[in-house]
């Protein structure tokens, strides 16, 4: 039972990342009607926001202490990060919490990148065929990825979680298992909760604000909303920005779980597209549900007991499910009629 429970937990943090990326993809697709193959690159850029923040916070002043000598007879170098010099304890705190802090930085940057991308490129492709949308965003993804590679190099750059969240939580005790049975890394739980919070925020935004109402109306019938005198294009630009922010935050917070490298976006993108298709093109709820579902199923498939029966199933489970779903329920789990059916 607790092994079962542990596998569900294992799937949830990865599922959270899938759900966040798929949510952004679905929003963009539902509003703008654009298939964005560069969304994985946005996820990756969010992760590299975290890398940059840590690098900037970690800038050090180096001075030599002539009173102490190293074993080689040179003076000991004392390195002290500037933030600690300037802010004292708060600086230490900042350094430790560089990943959560990077969210604050990633938010405006990703919003800017998203809006710039929509205004600069995507809006010229609304009327073009889907094949061309796929191709141009695919090209953009390669470009973004290679730029990041040329700046940060090709190797993964590990990002530590804050000290507090680095340990394990004996999660089972609080829900009635014996101590030591369900022990789980704290950061992964935090990531799961974080993804729930972001998903909740996006849904609340769409459901309870006037802006969100207009966007939902635009998703249902773009032309009528335009006829009512609402500048739907401008709203959709901001929606694209929001989708970019969601992907970016997902990436920034994921860095302690998976050290970011330049092609992490592509790896996640393929899976996220499968998630969107399984959930149903254009259905926000479907994307989130399918994200968590596939994350959990993937972690079940990587259990040794399952692998003993079906070797290699952990590698292909997601694709296999996508194939089955698409053949049995062509619109995905919660797809709406009339979306992408020509």
């Amino acid at each position: 039972m607790d092994a079962f429970f542990l596998q569900i937990l294992n799937g949830l943090d990865k599922g959270g990342a899938y759900a966040l990326i798929a949510l952004g993809l679905t929003i963009i697709f539902g509003t703008l009607g654009v298939v964005n193959f560069a969304h994985g690159a946005l996820f990756m850029m969010g992760a590299f926001c975290a890398v940059t923040v840590k690098a900037l916070l970690g800038l050090e002043s180096v001075r030599e202490d002539p009173t102490q000598m190293t074993a080689w007879g040179t003076p000991v170098e004392i390195r002290e990060p500037y933030v600690e010099t300037w802010f004292g304890d708060f600086g230490t705190f900042l350094l430790d919490f560089s990943v959560p802090v990077s969210i604050l930085v990633a938010l405006p940057i990703m919003l800017f990148i998203g809006i710039a991308m929509e205004r600069g490129l995507i809006r010229y492709f609304y009327k073009r065929p889907h094949a061309e949308q796929i191709l141009v965003t695919f090209g953009l993804a390669i470009v973004l990825q290679e730029i990041v590679k040329s700046i940060f190099g090709a190797n993964p750059i590990p990002q530590p979680a804050p000290d507090v969240a680095r340990g394990m939580i004996d999660f089972g005790v609080s829900i009635g298992f014996d101590a030591g049975n369900v022990v789980y890394p704290a950061w992964r739980l935090i990531y799961f909760l974080f993804s729930l919070a972001v998903i909740g925020a996006v849904f609340a935004f769409l459901q309870f604000t006037t802006f969100g109402m207009v966007v939902r109306a635009g998703m249902a019938d773009r032309e009528t909303v335009g006829l009512l005198g609402i500048d739907i294009d401008r709203r959709f630009t901001i929606v694209f920005g929001i989708a970019a922010v969601v992907a970016g935050l997902a990436g920034a917070m994921y860095t302690p779980i998976l050290s970011p490298d330049y092609h992490m976006g592509m790896d996640f993108l393929v899976l996220s597209f499968v998630v969107v298709v399984v959930g149903g093109m254009g259905s926000l709820g479907g994307a989130v549900a399918a994200g968590f579902l596939l994350g959990v199923l993937q972690s079940f498939a990587s259990m040794n007991e399952v692998k003993a029966i079906l070797p290699g199933i952990d590698q292909i489970i997601i694709y296999l499910i996508a194939v089955v779903i698409l053949l049995v329920r062509p619109r995905g789990l919660m797809g709406r009629k009339g979306v992408m059916e020509h």
Partner: peptide
């Protein structure tokens, strides 16, 4: 059995598999 983007993603899924 599917067209458009669904077809693209199905083929992608098979290739990745």
């Amino acid at each position: 059995r599917r067209t458009g983007i669904y077809f693209s993603i199905l083929t992608l899924a098979f290739a990745q598999m």
